[in-house]
């Protein structure tokens, strides 16, 4: 390993020599997980296991035990060959370690503070890396995930794609696409939350199911009522999650303004408020998802059912028709009780 003196600062700048690198690769296959610096901003530092602190530079490789330390204006992107990309955000300490599990050396990448985004480009096999914070580790499979390490020791995992299993205090939570979980320090993972996609659109559903509806109008109404009940339950659950998360997020936002020290304030904002705001935002999007899906069902399925029955029975309104109308009115009443609170004028 070559070391050069960093002029003016007394620090050392480290670069790997080709011969030394080949030697390392031959001696320890697990070090194939070494990460190289492909992009950086600011003046991030490399902290070695020996305790030396060096400037980080393009092309440098991180070995097991090395840490990347970023300041408030720093950003680092690392690549592990074509296997993965790791983005180290400002005010973060990111470390690569190796542990032995069942006789196999395994790479663990973690951040004790700050946030790190991982993108794993392969389906990881037996030697798959593990990621986490100082208190929690997670196994990954072909994944894009962001890991936040809170100043209070808590961790937040948000998965963009792939699969992550988060284990803490003997309990595991498996996360897939658009799911997240917060883990308090020393405690088991909390309830996982999800950010789901665009709301369901029932615009084309009614036409395709018209024949079924005419065969059994009351049964079709019951089917819609069941689906609305499911949306109602989910919306109510997520609304309560929103209220709970909002309380913490609002308190954290207020706390930002109270912190006098500039650096501490920025760190608190990035590591505490932002993740809480993300969690609150996810809950809002989720209760809105269920409410808007229900609105679509009401508009494009329930409404046309009523119009169809009314048109067909305009001259003769028998007992079956009146039963249908009574049930329809009941469902519409339940809809308003359940969903109006989550909807905006612009939705309607």
């Amino acid at each position: 390993m070559l070391q050069t003196t960093h002029t003016g600062s007394g620090r050392t700048r480290r670069a790997l020599g080709c011969a030394a690198l080949l030697g390392i690769l031959a001696a320890a296959p697990a070090l194939a997980q070494d990460a190289s610096v492909v992009y950086l901003e600011g003046e991030p530092e490399l902290r070695t296991p020996q305790g030396t602190t060096d400037w980080l530079d393009f092309g440098m490789s991180l070995a097991a035990g090395d840490s990347v330390v970023t300041g408030s204006n720093d950003f680092v992107e690392l690549e592990q060959g074509s296997a993965s990309t790791i983005q180290v955000d400002p005010d973060t300490v990111f470390t690569i370690r190796e542990v032995e599990v069942d006789g196999q050396r395994q790479t663990v990448m973690s951040n004790s503070v700050g946030s790190v985004r991982y993108r794993f480009n392969r389906i990881a096999g037996r030697g798959e890396p593990r990621i986490g914070t100082s208190s929690v580790v997670a196994g990954i499979r072909g994944t894009e995930v962001t890991v936040y390490a809170g100043a209070d020791g808590s961790s937040l995992f948000l998965v963009d794609s792939g699969e992550v299993e988060v284990t803490s205090a003997g309990q595991s939570v498996s996360l897939t696409e658009n799911e997240g979980v917060e883990v308090p320090v020393g405690g088991p993972p909390g309830e996982k939350f999800e950010v789901i996609g665009r709301e369901l659109n029932f615009a084309d559903w009614a036409a395709s199911r018209r024949g079924d509806f005419l065969d059994d109008p009351l049964g079709s109404l019951d089917g819609v009522a069941t689906r609305l009940d499911e949306f109602s339950t989910e919306a109510a659950t997520w609304y309560q999650n929103y209220l709970d998360a909002k309380e913490q997020s609002d308190a954290a936002r207020e706390r930002i303004g109270e912190i006098q020290d500039e650096q501490e304030r920025q760190t608190y904002r990035d590591e505490t408020w932002r993740p809480l705001a993300d969690q609150t935002g996810a809950a809002i999007l989720n209760y809105r998802y269920h409410a808007l899906s229900a609105l679509s069902l009401r508009r494009y399925v329930l409404g046309p059912m009523y119009m169809e029955m009314k048109t067909r029975n305009i001259l003769q309104q028998d007992a079956q028709y009146r039963e249908f109308v009574d049930r329809f009115d009941e469902i519409v009443g339940s809809f308003e009780d359940a969903f109006v609170q989550y909807l905006e004028d612009t939705d309607i």
Binding site: R198, E199, G281, I284, R288
Partner: peptide, 8 residues
Amino acid sequence: YNQVNQTY
């Protein structure tokens, strides 16, 4: 797009 509102 449809889900974001003032609260969000």
